[in-house]
């Protein structure tokens, strides 16, 4: 009954209360390390990226081709039917021009993350990646972009084997 209550509990602290140790606190830095298995579907995806190719999967029942690949169709809940090589170009579905990193440190040069609809996949199906070799002011939704690959010798089987996508005419 907010109208009836005059004083609510909760004491707000200032940053200086911590920096000047006006309040007591404890700290802990976890050493949390993980090694994630890529799995069956993404394992193949990464292996193909190492070869300079983007691969997706097709479900005949739902008549759709998706990327990143998965071993099952989450719509009809049966195994995917086939692997399908896709193009290494596509269309910008949406993008951002990001001036901060995760800890809110400012970036000198903005990152341009984008969802890129990959040619050969079903309409609207894309992956998350970065755009490069483009003036941030020139980026548009609907812009055609192409993968810029690392040289074969530097590719390790990772999403970063594609450096970024750049505009094409």
């Amino acid at each position: 009954m907010t109208a009836k209550i005059k004083e609510f509990p909760g004491v707000g602290l200032r940053e200086s209360d911590f920096t000047e140790r006006k309040v007591l606190f404890t700290e802990w830095k976890p050493d949390a390390r993980y090694a994630w298995d890529a799995g069956v579907a993404i394992g193949r995806y990464l292996a193909e990226l190492k070869e300079g190719r983007i691969i997706g999967v097709r479900c005949h029942h739902c008549r759709r081709t998706v990327v990143p690949p998965r071993i099952f169709c989450e719509w009809c809940f049966r195994p995917m039917d086939e692997w399908v090589y896709l193009e290494d170009h596509g269309v910008v579905n949406t993008f951002s021009i990001c001036y901060v990193q995760w800890d809110m440190e400012r970036l000198e040069e903005p990152l341009i993350p984008a969802v890129i609809e990959i040619a050969g996949a079903s309409k609207g199906v894309g992956i998350l990646h970065l755009l490069g070799e483009v003036d941030p002011r020139e980026v548009k939704i609907g812009m055609k972009v192409k993968a810029v690959w690392k040289p074969a010798a530097e590719r390790i089987g990772a999403i970063t084997d594609i450096r970024y996508f750049k505009p094409i005419n």
Binding site: Y45, L128, L130
Partner: peptide, 11 residues
């Protein structure tokens, strides 16, 4: 595997 290597943040 497919997104975090790109350095995303929640924004």
């Amino acid at each position: 595997t497919t997104e975090r290597p790109l350095g995303p943040n929640l924004l």
